[in-house]
């Protein structure tokens, strides 16, 4: 455990809390992509299957349970809550996210640390998480005005994986740990946020509304 890793996980938790606060307080999920949320549920389920097979960890286990519970709750709200589901931008959340699942599954089948059910699914979840934000970024580009909570949510989501990259650099030098799969996927994932980060920081600096081209 190192400070980067702890900060990263707390940032990730914060992003989810921001999203839950937004949905619960504004009773609206406008600007949030349900497809991205669906993909995150898939990411957490396929990654945390080892919850009960591997020894429980005082740190990881609570986080895994919270991530699973919150991501499922968010999808439940957006699909079935009578008020919230009316505010879902169904017509602009158009990204074909099913086209993301198959390539990640095929890639996981061929590139994984060990050809076992758990490891292949774990690789699948790592690859899927790298691209899961795409529907959300596409939706933001078509949104006329992005509300602050949504902007902060996406920013924190991108920042958490960037912090994981720092954690991996630290672990490489301090603990000689090498992990190609999450490293490369994490780089791709963070790179996808690059232009969002640029516009987000620019809007924050000029104290103006966040607007993606």
């Amino acid at each position: 455990m190192n400070a980067f890793r702890l900060l990263a996980d707390l940032t990730h938790l914060l992003s989810i809390i921001i999203l839950l606060v937004k949905i619960r307080t504004t009773k609206s999920c406008a600007g949030i992509s349900l497809k991205t949320q669906d993909l995150y549920v898939l990411v957490f389920i396929s990654r945390y299957l080892d919850l009960f097979t591997r020894p429980l960890s005082l740190y990881n286990t609570p986080f895994k349970l919270v991530f699973l519970a919150t991501s499922i709750t968010i999808v439940y709200y957006m699909r079935y809550h009578k008020v919230v589901k009316q505010t879902y931008n169904k017509d602009s959340d158009t990204f074909k996210h099913y086209f993301l699942i198959l390539p990640c599954a095929v890639l996981a089948f061929f590139i994984n640390p060990k050809f076992t059910f758990i490891e292949v699914l774990w690789s699948f979840s790592i690859y899927l998480e790298a691209v899961a934000i795409l529907p959300q970024l596409v939706l933001l580009q078509s949104s006329s005005n992005i509300d602050n909570l949504t902007g902060n949510y996406v920013f924190m989501l991108g920042a958490y994986r960037a912090l994981y990259l720092l954690n991996w650099i630290y672990r490489f030098f301090a603990e000689d740990v090498v992990r190609w799969i999450p490293w490369i996927a994490g780089l791709v994932q963070t790179a996808l946020y690059a232009d969002f980060f640029y516009y987000y920081i620019k809007s924050w600096r000029n104290n103006e509304r966040l607007k993606l081209p």
Binding site: D9, N60, F63, P113, W180, I181
Partner: peptide, 10 residues
């Protein structure tokens, strides 16, 4: 294998 790592991260 060198790639096989215990999953100690989230």
């Amino acid at each position: 294998e060198c790639l096989y790592q215990p999953k100690d991260e989230l």
